[in-house]
Structure formats: C-alpha cells, structure tokens
Amino acid sequence: MHLSDGILPGPVLVAGFVSAAALARWGVAGLRDDETPRVAVFTGAFFCASLLHFKVPPTSVHLLFHGLLGVVLGRRALLALPIGLGLQATLLGHGGITTLGVNATMFGVAALAASGLYRWLGSGGSVRPFWCGALAAAAAVLISGLLLAAMLWSLGEGFVWVARYALLAHLPVLVIEAVVTGSAVEFLRRAQPALLPGGAA
C-alpha cells in the first residue's frame, strides 16, 4: 500500500526524497550502458503486473510485487521502484508525487530484504523454490506494511487507528502476494532459471 499526498508533514517528505535518492545512487552504481534496456523493460513489466486485480471478497486488490522485483532485479530494484512509482503517480494517480521519496524508500528497503532472504533461503538448496519466493514476498509486504504503519503512528494519537487499519489491510495482501510470488518463482525456475539469482546454471 502506498502513502498518498497530503498526510505527511514536509520534513518527513524531504527525508523520504533524500533517502530514496541515496538508495537509487547505490542501485545505479556499476550500471553498464547496455543494462539500461533491461532495467527499463522489467520496470515496465512490474508496473503492468501491478495492475492485475486479485479477488478478495468483497473487493479486489492490486499486488505490489516489490518482493518479486527484489528477487529478480536485486540491487537494481532500487532504481526500478522510484521510476515505477513515479510513473504510477503521474499516469494513474496511485500513491502521490510528494510521497514518491517516502514510498520508494519504504518499498526499496522491503525489496532489498526480500532479495537477501531469497538468496539466503535458496543457497542451501533444501527449501523449495515456491517457499523461497513466498517467504521473500511475505517479508517484503510485512516490512513495507510495518514501515507504513510506523510512519502513520508517528503522526499523533489520532492516527493510531489509521495505522492499525493500514496494517490489518496488509494481511490479505500478504497472503496473496506470497502465494502469487511463490508460484511465479516456481514457474520461472522451470521456464527460465536465468532470470533468478543463482539459477543460471
């Protein structure tokens, strides 16, 4: 879930932009010129995937796919996220322009954690690909959800309920995101292992 415009105070927004810029700087380090199309096309693919609806009665949810993004792109996810979120904010009005930095930081940290967890789980070879992907995605949703709730929490007493509601709303997303990411990882492992870290062999 994103933070939208108008809620957070200015200093937090500025801090968000600063941290997102620092993360993107780290994400861009060592990027070769011929790697540009790869990052761009994957960013577009994730942008489109996040438009898919998943039914959760009584409504439907969009998934974030920042877990899968972290798994597939690794450090480059820090580059893909601000771009994808920026395009989402400008083209669709999801999220917000002023909260772009905060959102990119939140999802960026979560994607990095997912990437690390996936590598760690996958390195032993004893955990099935489905569970590697599912746990990585669950961790990503949990981390970004907790960061979001913490930020709302810090706004004052009136926002405590909003923070709780936001955290609660993450639970169905967490389950679906885990199942979907797990299945996608399982599929990719069979169809094109080169896309996943440690799978090129």
């Binding site: 096309v41 979907v180 996608a184 599929f187």
Partner: peptide
C-alpha cells in the same frame, strides 16, 4: 492465483526476450 502468477511469470519471460 497460480494462473495469474504464471501470467506474471510469462510477462517477465517475454520482457527478458524483448530486452
């Protein structure tokens, strides 16, 4: 969900080829 996950997977696959 599995079917949609495979759609996402195929999108990524084709993206790789497109890249």
């Amino acid at each position: 969900w599995r079917a949609l996950a495979q759609v996402v997977g195929v999108t990524l696959l084709r993206s790789l080829e497109r890249t």
